[in-house]
């Protein structure tokens, strides 16, 4: 008697969202099963892997990442180089230099970098703000305008600034709005509802439901994603059917395991390996929980996670 299990195929499915334009455009979402449950039904679109660079160019990169960008001096150089790494589906540019509590670079300067990158590479783009609510309102508005027609994901619209980002990225310039909430299904849902009420098309929203590095309250991430996918698929909750994108890099590169020097922690061994494994293991876990795209930093992590996805889909 062979194994017979009930199929876990759902009648509802995750929204399909296409990012970028032309040959290199990517499509995420569309699945009607839980993550990688290919035995229930084919996965409509494999999850995608992005690589993150910042406006700061080489200055912002840890030593172990720098070596992959040898010969680059600007963010644009890095973008071109990053596009050639194995497994890279899209490029994410984090404008952390805009933070008023940090470098506080002027918006024009940052937007110029974006424009230059968009001109130099044909990969789909994700634009991440500097996390400061006021600055992001201005920065992401101008970024959306400057990249009009490129169909980029703008990360992110939060409860505090969803109106500005939603109106600018979603309405005025027809980009894809990344709705960011803090590991809570109800907040994620509420933000999607608010954005759609503002007039943003639900099919042009992707969610960042929040993340954490493995070991750092990651249980909340798992449960939030599990529940979001359950609501979207088994309850057919249209307000949660947006694909999920998770910026893993910005979580993992700040934790002790990925930062403590080898001199401080001799028994822990290679810092690069620690950072890469932290990134890989966190990314594998968010993918297993339902992320449709992950943003990573180290080329080796990108390659490995891309391979894992290929093996599973």
């Amino acid at each position: 008697m062979p194994f017979t299990g009930k199929s876990g195929k759902f009648s509802a499915k995750i929204n399909t969202v296409t990012v970028g334009t032309g040959d290199k455009a990517i499509t995420i979402g569309g699945e009607n099963v839980l993550p990688f449950y290919t035995f229930d039904d084919a996965i409509a679109n494999a999850p995608k892997v992005g690589i993150e660079i910042t406006d700061g160019g080489m200055d912002n990169e840890p030593e172990c990442v720098k070596k992959y960008y040898e010969g680059c001096s600007t963010a644009v150089d890095m973008a071109k180089k990053a596009a050639t790494f194995e497994g890279v589906d899209f490029l994410s540019i984090r404008l952390e230099g805009g933070d008023p509590n940090g470098e506080n670079k002027p918006t024009e300067e940052l937007v110029q970098i974006l424009k230059d990158i968009a001109d130099a590479v044909d990969l789909p783009l994700v634009v991440c703000g500097c996390k400061n609510v006021e600055k992001d309102g201005e920065l992401l508005d101008k970024a959306s305008s400057a990249l009009a027609g490129k169909n980029v994901i703008v990360l992110s619209a939060r409860e505090e600034d969803y109106k500005t980002i939603g109106a600018s990225a979603g309405l005025a310039y027809k980009q894809i709005v990344g709705a960011e909430s803090a590991v809570d299904i109800n907040l994620a849902k509420q933000l999607n509802v608010l954005l759609t009420q503002l007039g943003v098309n639900g099919q042009s929203i992707v969610m960042n439901v929040g993340s954490a590095a493995a070991g750092y309250g990651f249980e909340y991430v798992v449960s939030t994603m599990d529940r979001v996918k359950a609501a979207a698929l088994s309850q057919s909750d249209a307000t949660l059917q947006m694909p999920i994108i998770t910026p893993v890099a910005s979580e993992v590169w700040g934790v002790k395991e990925a930062m403590a020097s080898e001199a401080d922690m001799p028994e822990w061994g290679s810092l690069e390996e620690r950072a890469v494994d932290m990134e890989i293991e966190t990314a594998a876990a968010v993918l297993a929980s339902g992320s449709n795209a992950v943003i990573l930093r180290h080329p080796e992590s990108v390659k490995t996670i891309s391979q894992l996805i290929k093996e599973l889909v």
Binding site: A213, G215, E257, R274
Partner: peptide, 26 residues
């Protein structure tokens, strides 16, 4: 995450273990 009771590996380095055991604890 899904659903290994025992996972067998070639080696266990600190690099692998630090995030892994944290994840498991979570």
């Amino acid at each position: 995450m899904k659903y290994g009771s025992i996972v067998v590996v070639d080696e266990m380095t600190y690099a692998e273990a630090l995030p892994l055991y944290g994840l498991r604890q979570n």
